[in-house]
Nucleic acid binder design. Structure first.
Length: 120
DNA sequence: ACCCTGACTTGGC
DNA sequence: GGCCAAGCCAGGG
């Protein structure tokens, strides 16, 4: 990847996630311009989170659940979020209605319109 | 270059 | 609502 604009956007977006909020991989990918790039987002976090000091723990899957498989990293993510005031359900899920970060809704709507999925 | 894997998502059963 | 299969994009062997 290196200097792909998509990667740049993803990094920028991740850095802008407010404390105490979460966002899904797909949403990040969509904001960055590639709605299909959810998996790429995970790779970016996996490889760049430390280098760029990205708040990777604020990224969860579309169900509001921690995406990583059970393990130490998962515990860390949960602890990080709880420390920011995010409450978890039993199954490591958060309430997206409360914690989902909606950055510049206009952009998202614009994306939807381009895809012709919204009837305003 | 091919194949497998992954911190994803959506749609069908 | 949970499990399975198929799409999707990139990196690594």
């Amino acid at each position: 990847m290196r200097h792909d604009p998509f990667t740049q956007s993803v990094i920028m977006i991740i850095k802008k996630i407010p404390k105490g909020k979460v966002i899904s991989y797909g949403a990040v990918a969509g904001m960055a311009g590639n709605k299909r790039g959810a998996r790429q987002v995970s790779w970016i976090l996996h490889s760049m989170s430390e280098k760029c000091s990205l708040p990777w723990w604020r990224v969860v899957n579309s169900k509001g659940k921690i995406a990583i498989r059970p393990g130490e990293a998962m515990e860390i993510q949960r602890a990080k979020l709880e420390a920011e005031g995010v409450q978890f359900a039993e199954d490591n899920c958060v309430d997206l209605d409360l914690y989902m970060w909606e950055s510049n809704t206009k952009i998202e709507i614009d994306q939807e319109l381009r895809n012709g999925k919204v009837q305003a």
